[in-house]
Write a protein that binds this DNA or RNA. Sequence first.
DNA 1: CGGACTCTTGATTGCAGTCAACTAAAGTGG
DNA 2: CCACTTTAGTTGACTGCAATCAAGAGTCCG
Lengths: 252, 252
Amino acid sequence: MTSPFVRKLRQGAQLSTEDEILLMGLSRSLHYAEARHDIYSEGDRPGSLTLILKGWACRDKILENGQRQIIAFFLPGDLCEPFGILPPFMNHSITALTPVTYARLRPDELRAMAQENSSIEQALWWDALAAMELQHEHVVSLGRRQAVERLGHLFCELHMRLAVVGLADRTGFSLPVTQQELGDALGLSAVHVNRSLRELRSLGFVNLRHRRLDLLDLNALKEFSLFDPAYLRFNGQPLHDGAWSAPSAVER
Amino acid sequence: MTSPFVRKLRQGAQLSTEDEILLMGLSRSLHYAEARHDIYSEGDRPGSLTLILKGWACRDKILENGQRQIIAFFLPGDLCEPFGILPPFMNHSITALTPVTYARLRPDELRAMAQENSSIEQALWWDALAAMELQHEHVVSLGRRQAVERLGHLFCELHMRLAVVGLADRTGFSLPVTQQELGDALGLSAVHVNRSLRELRSLGFVNLRHRRLDLLDLNALKEFSLFDPAYLRFNGQPLHDGAWSAPSAVER
DNA sequence: CGGACTCTTGATTGCAGTCAACTAAAGTGG
DNA sequence: CCACTTTAGTTGACTGCAATCAAGAGTCCG
């Protein structure tokens, strides 16, 4: 059983079996976080990168007035920081939304691996690009989309991200977060999330109950939410070669 | 006269004179864009990274319904994409807000330079980190701050970013964008930007006229906007060494 | 079985959008 | 250099989306 990390990275580069073994070998140091507990808190000085293996987490920030904003959701296979970046201190938290199993990766090890192996380098840079564009689309949602569209768009995004790591199929997926947490991600109140959910249900698009999202008409939902999956960079042609392969790195 | 790029990167690493000469040598290929024209449009396949040398630009996306969201402002010294990332195609635009002078950088050249020079590597990763956290804070603003706070927060951020490259002092700075564009960045209508501006003026914090922002009481504005500059990662201790220096790279 | 979340719905409030008219500034061309 | 046009800024009136407040129902869990 390949790890979700490897499954996702396959979207960004052609990986050989040896590449995949190398990548899986990174997850030596396994850790566990309980639901609603911080993996990293504001002010912490992280010593390693966090790779989510199982469960859901998020990057979130609590404001002075007690309001919370979820900046990003992290799903199995997600690296909470791009591969070469280790912040000297955190100014927000990484919080487990469910029980989470994660690995701690050493950035120097990752970067050394990237330096020696251009496929892995390309995959890691691809992952960093995809993570940035996720943020961009989040800004677009919060800035210019209405509540119902935001919610629908998020569902489409989560579905594609989960499908890539084998955690969603055509019928739906497990959505283990509260409506309050959806609101914290979408800049909405829990009450309004509930009402928007009702609207999506009454339109016959989805049904959320018992922490599972049933997709009743995915295509209609995508159209309604103006969802264009290009920003996820899935299944795309690999990032073009000329500019990508480091001058000295030659793959055999 | 050192370039704004170098001035900014000094915030992220100790750069020797030779490092700075190397970095300035990157900006060989100079280009020019007129105000309101795209540097890259949606669908383009960029062949190089864009470094803003003079003028203001932005990353923006036009939605199907004609609404626009500005995802990020780019100021002199800003790299529009992190140093190792060259998207295979653009799914949004990079647009000049004023007349812009920019350089085209080859990612392989940048990465080769980073590989040989650990100070430069650290500076470039630092820049990528700072750019990501800018995005995070943008999400927080759009999700959880009120209009007036958003505007005030943006002014504080722009002031610090411009000050680092020598384009702002205590009295204010040139703000060469329309109120409509401020609204497109903050998820507000131009009318509401105007009203919020009036409120900030009536509170005695700032005064915006003829494309210049006068800072009348910067500290009060920062307090009012709950502005915590930590996310800009300026003047911080350099990113810590142990995890950062690549195993084989030794600086002399 | 009790207590704590979470979800749901209704009533009310308020922040920000839209529409519209007018002023000010900045270009443009004769 | 001055009419004319266009773009940007300003203000008022009204509307509407989403927040808040509140209460009840449903679930989960010890």
